[in-house]
């Protein structure tokens, strides 16, 4: 990773959805930084706010969502306050997204090469020859045969191939940051392994920072340098992957790791987390995890726990570690 210079710094970010039932606080007062060159894994269950977080960074939120507080500093500018015209120069050029359900993201009536040409054209690059050359390089980097793939329609490619095409497409304009939202979720085990290995190789070959969003904590263990654990719109724990997995501080992180049925470890130690994730229109007071927590204290249902740095770079929001 080299120097720990932050490339993106998020401070006090809150994003809400306006729904008929009321305000949904999908991302609530979240602060963290992304370090240049790292893979930051963001893990959480559905509804934890992890996808909203990534859409907030790129400001590609649905119409009923809005960033209501906080800042996202990137290269000295606050993306939250950047005019839309300027934001267009960031998207794809500087920060790029591989969206969730990406397997349906390709236009079935367009050849793969047209996807590359169209994307580049929209972002102001008109030299088709140069685009195809760049696309071929990227596809090769992702171990696809450029000649065959560029001339194919999406339906002629397997799921794993389409996923790799989408990663190549996101890398087309040499972004500094790549956000991947559940990039291996719909894939079979072997294809998932191939994509994980490719992403690891890619980091060695090109200068890139990745934010990897997933519900699967095992994938984070496999790939990320640091992990941010999200629960009900909050980051509850963030730190180095090896440290967090070896010695998770937050009761939610501990429970989440144990709730994964895995091919390693003892079956007896695996168990579900009791209760279910909260309704974000009406989240529980205090720590949002307290109704499901096995170690809760009286204070947990009253006051929100502050973020505490338990070890250098390892931050936990839990009353077990905060001065009360």
């Amino acid at each position: 990773m080299g120097s720990a210079e932050p490339i993106i710094e998020v401070k006090g970010l809150s994003t809400v959805y306006y729904s008929l039932r009321g305000l949904v606080r999908a991302v609530d007062n979240v602060s963290f930084s992304v370090i240049r060159g790292e893979v930051l894994g963001v893990v959480g269950e559905s509804g934890s706010g992890k996808s909203t977080l990534s859409m907030s960074i790129l400001r590609v939120l649905p119409l009923n969502a809005r960033i209501v507080a906080g800042s996202i500093m990137y290269n000295g500018v606050d993306l939250v306050r950047l005019p839309e015209q300027e934001m267009k120069k960031i998207r794809w050029h500087k920060i790029s997204l591989v969206p969730q359900a990406a397997l349906n993201a390709l236009n079935p009536t367009m050849k793969i090469k047209e996807h590359f040409i169209e994307t580049a054209r929209y972002h102001g690059v008109r030299d088709k020859g140069a685009v195809i050359k760049k696309a071929s390089e990227l596809l090769e980097l992702l171990r696809l045969e450029p000649r065959r793939v560029l001339e194919s329609y999406p339906h002629e490619l397997s799921g794993g191939m389409k996923q790799r095409v989408l990663i190549a497409l996101a890398l087309l304009l040499d972004p500094e940051v790549l956000i991947l939202d559940e990039p291996t979720t719909a894939l079979d085990v072997l294809t998932q392994r191939a994509i994980l290995d490719l992403l690891k190789d890619l980091r060695k070959k090109i200068d890139i920072t990745m934010i990897f969003i997933t519900h699967d904590i095992a994938v984070i263990a496999d790939l990320a340098d640091r992990v941010a654990v999200m629960y009900a719109g909050k980051i509850v724990e963030i730190g180095d992957v090896f440290t967090v997995f070896k010695n998770p501080y937050h009761p939610y992180t501990r429970a989440l790791i144990k709730s994964i049925p895995s091919v390693i470890g003892s079956v007896e130690e695996m168990k579900p987390i009791p209760g279910s994730p909260p309704d974000l229109v009406n989240p529980p007071p205090g720590c949002r995890f307290h109704p499901r927590c096995g170690e809760k204290l009286p204070v947990c249902s009253e006051k929100e726990p502050p973020a505490v740095e338990v070890k250098p770079g390892h931050v936990v929001s839990c009353w077990l570690y905060a001065a009360r």
Binding site: V189, A221, D222, F242, V263
Partner: peptide, 11 residues
């Protein structure tokens, strides 16, 4: 091939 929730083993 399957990733496991232990970075040392999974890597």
């Amino acid at each position: 091939a399957v990733p496991v929730p232990d970075p040392e083993i999974s890597r």
